[in-house]
Design a binder for these strands. Sequence first.
DNA 1: CTCATATAGTATCCTCAAGACACTATCTCG
DNA 2: CGAGATAGTGTCTTGAGGATACTATATGAG
Lengths: 254, 254
Amino acid sequence: MEDGQAMDQDRVPLELARLWRIPLDSKLGRPARLDVGSVVDAAVALADREGLAAVTLPRVAESLGVTKMSLYRHVGSKDELLDLMRDAANGPVPDSLAGTGPWRERLRLWATEQLRVLEAHPWLAQVPPSGPPSGPNGIDWFDAGLRSLRLTGLDWGAKVGALMIVSGYVTSAAQLAQALAAGREGTGMDQAAAEREYGRAMARLVDPERFPDAAALFGGGLLEDTGEDTGENDFHFGLELLLDGVAAAVAGDE
Amino acid sequence: MEDGQAMDQDRVPLELARLWRIPLDSKLGRPARLDVGSVVDAAVALADREGLAAVTLPRVAESLGVTKMSLYRHVGSKDELLDLMRDAANGPVPDSLAGTGPWRERLRLWATEQLRVLEAHPWLAQVPPSGPPSGPNGIDWFDAGLRSLRLTGLDWGAKVGALMIVSGYVTSAAQLAQALAAGREGTGMDQAAAEREYGRAMARLVDPERFPDAAALFGGGLLEDTGEDTGENDFHFGLELLLDGVAAAVAGDE
DNA sequence: CTCATATAGTATCCTCAAGACACTATCTCG
DNA sequence: CGAGATAGTGTCTTGAGGATACTATATGAG
């Protein structure tokens, strides 16, 4: 079809067109100093520097040397800007995910690479989800996830479900880590000290009559300090648990 | 010890004292028309009626017949109010979770009861996480989760990890469902129609050269309409997958 | 009984956000 | 060279969270 490209530009909703950076290439009117890409890049840079809360239209505009209202020509709304930022910050999938291979190891890598992205852009875990992956980078990650499961023989629904679980897990692990870090903001405590403090406060509040299991946990279980990096270990424990679940689905499918 | 109660009131941080509704019982000063409970109840009711975005200090105050600044006497800040709302809306664990029994069935029930709570208070899934469970209801749910795993022989760390995964999964499933529902707001599409529309848009944008697996998915896989309630089925598929993962941990522990 | 003190609620202020709308500036094409 | 289309600006409204200084109302010590 000769109109394939033209159709792309016309029939796709405006929001998707911006996500995919489909140029409108109308040469009329005053030429633009700005484009979607530069607005999004500025917003991402701002979020990286000062956190998601600092990303306001006035401040993004200021960092571009422009007034806030001009941004609306390129992003439509604050919410849409967040979608664009998410896709941009996710970035393309790293080369390590290019090939195919044993699904478990590929899927594990997929998860840990996602975690790396969330560590590089901590605010990313706080951007509220807005639906299935729609942007080019989101699709790239999605494609890589599907590729990691290509050899499993799972049907599409199972693959999609497994990917959503794994990536949801990575996100909530990152969220939790950030919430803990934020909670001990100011107090000069490290992770272990904060956990001890939490355990102590809970031990005082949790009545063993009403909450026997929780009281047992706070009373004794948590206080052993292994000295190792707890967060990392917890993450991998959970990830392997998920992979075991996927393994069961793969096996049950045969 | 005779000073047990007094210690509770003194040594516990103010925020925890409010979560646990520990009365200050100082009889001095002007008597309060408000207390933490009524502020939180009003905020929860408002969120139930009009969503989380409607919960602003002015509006909560208005619904209590009070000016906004008086709320700060009882809740400290907006963020703290959100914490209090979360704990209140979680509510105590339902009776069905009281006993003990086969872990898999108990844990499954724990998850589905959590989902019911999230359906009753849709805004709950959007409240940003603020750390480990700290309020009485949060502890109640936590205790019930630990109880469901009591007979597994898992160590504390594994139990806590498994619970975090399951409850994180329930939350992100609810978040996704809401994002999808919000996305098709206005458009009179049902779930299936919206999915078809999404698949069609993606099929147009996703280049099979760059994204072979994703293109295959959008090209053919998603379009079979089973007619059944997809969301429910997806949720249970994922939950059983997680339970399989926990089962592997339980088995590996022996 | 009365007055210092402690607490509850109020009145007013500030800073800053998102966004509507009408305006000006600058380009291309007929 | 103008007409129309597009980019960017100036100004306004609404409404948020929160600081501060005030008033109101109770208790309990002298």
